[in-house]
Design a protein around this nucleic acid. Structure first.
Length: 145
DNA sequence: GCCAACGTTGGC
DNA sequence: GCCAACGTTGGC
């Protein structure tokens, strides 16, 4: 799960302990949270669009999917005029802090790892903010720390 | 700031 | 349903 650290970083999650993953406005990413994730699933927290791009730590899905409150905030940047309380368009899950890595594992380094060469988020041109990680990929990444 | 690669919108 | 125009993401 990607986040821009100047918006919301692994340190912010560590401080808050649990946070709703607000602001996803892409249907594929939404569907991932709404349909695929289960409570207890581990997630990799990725820092994007920043000085040290890469994986910063681990979180855990800690709620069922529910409506993203920011879609109704008229003055907020995540406001969606087409969403209604009866028919919310954007769903999210809560993410709980698990751990912060001792270092951010750089994107460049991830790209050089053979066992990660098929990782969805590393594919050229991928912009999706939430993508699947296989068990093997996850374990390999934990081994890089 | 540039630009590739998408995703979305809206006219037809 | 098609597709041009436009907007966004995100690495560099």
């Amino acid at each position: 799960m990607k986040s821009e650290p100047n918006e919301y970083s692994i340190d912010d999650l560590k401080r808050d302990r649990v946070a709703p993953w607000v602001g996803v406005r892409n249907y594929q990413a939404r569907n991932f949270m709404r349909d695929e994730m289960r409570i207890g699933d581990l997630i990799l927290f990725y820092h994007s669009s920043c000085e040290n791009v890469g994986i910063a730590g681990i979180g855990k899905v800690s709620s069922e999917p529910y409506s993203d409150a920011t879609q109704f905030e008229r003055r907020g940047k995540y406001y969606d005029p087409k969403a209604t309380k009866e028919k919310p368009r954007w769903m999210l899950v809560d993410i709980r802090f698990v751990k912060k890595f001792k270092r951010v594992i750089p994107l460049q380094e991830l790209r050089q790892e053979k066992p990660l060469q098929n990782m969805i988020t590393l594919r050229p041109g991928n912009r999706l903010s939430i993508t699947a990680v296989t068990e093997n990929e996850f374990q390999h990444i934990e081994g890089l720390i």
